[in-house]
């Protein structure tokens, strides 16, 4: 390790943060692995999705912390102290000093990059030949465009499924008299959804029921202003009195 004297507390903090995030990642990976191994019928998709989202969040936070502490982490390099028990802990030492990735890890990475390069520009990593050209004709731009559209569209569909129960009836009507009133159901449906007022919190209604009035919002700012004005007035008065007194003395 780098000699402790040149490590600032910030550097230590960066290292510690990275370590914590990695521990979290390892934990969630182990969790997923355990789930996949133990459950005889595979765990249902919501739970799988939940754990993958968790993993993704952990990875994102690791990336964030390493990016912010990029400089410090770049500077660091491991070099054993003379007092390190090299004889007994040689395995650990080798692991610490090894710069190159393990062969199987390298395989994973190249495999992942291979998949990624099928639909997006990989720069120096990709093999270049396949970049931007895919079997199904989607490049990076169209993929991101697709997802930008798909997110809101999926939300819309979900909203229709969960909220509007009379959607079918509207559709039927629409089919019957499509010529003259084609736009009408849409006109009805769209603003109704937008202008659906937010519901009052239960507490407000209960307070109204018990005291006959909607709870008054105490205006802290107004009180503050009142107080400031009063203080200012008092200060002005004392200043005025002081000036009068002085004027009286000099006269």
């Amino acid at each position: 390790m780098q000699s402790a004297s040149s490590m600032t507390t910030d550097d230590l903090k960066a290292l510690d943060q990275a370590r914590n995030r990695m521990v979290a990642i390892v934990k969630s990976l182990e969790g997923i692995e355990g789930d996949l191994m133990r459950h005889e019928p595979l765990p249902n998709w919501p739970s799988l999705q939940k754990s993958s989202a968790l993993l993704l969040r952990n990875i994102t936070s690791l990336l964030n912390s390493t990016t912010t502490n990029n400089e410090a982490l770049q500077r660091m390099h491991s070099s054993p102290l003379a007092t390190f028990p090299g004889q007994s802990q040689s395995n650990l030492l080798h692991q610490l000093l090894r710069k190159k990735l393990e062969p199987n890890v390298e395989d994973w990475i190249s495999e992942g990059l291979g998949y990624a390069s099928k639909f997006c520009e990989m720069g120096e990593f990709g093999d270049g030949s396949a970049a931007g050209q895919t079997e199904d004709g989607l490049d990076e731009y169209s993929v991101s465009e697709l997802w930008e559209w798909a997110g809101p569209a999926e939300n819309d569909i979900a909203r229709q499924v969960f909220t509007a129960e009379d959607e079918d009836e509207e559709d039927d009507e629409d089919d019957e008299d499509e010529e003259d009133e084609e736009d009408e159901p849409m006109k009805d449906a769209a603003p109704a959804k937008d202008t659906e007022p937010p519901r009052l919190p239960l507490g407000t209604v209960l307070t109204y029921m018990s005291t006959g009035a909607v709870p008054k919002v105490v205006d802290r700012a107004q009180e503050e202003r009142d107080m400031q004005a009063a203080l200012k007035m008092r200060q002005a008065r004392t200043a005025q009195a002081e000036m009068d007194r002085r004027a009286g003395i000099t006269r």
């Binding site: 307070t207 018990s210 107080m227 004005a229 009063a230």
Partner: peptide, 26 residues
């Protein structure tokens, strides 16, 4: 719900500075 949303007591309302005249009037 929180017990105070069902509070039927009449609240004492202290407004210590509200009855002061505004500085312009003074």
């Amino acid at each position: 719900p929180d017990r105070l949303v069902l509070d039927t007591r009449v609240k004492y309302q202290a407004r210590p500075f509200a009855n002061l005249q505004p500085p312009a009037a003074a």
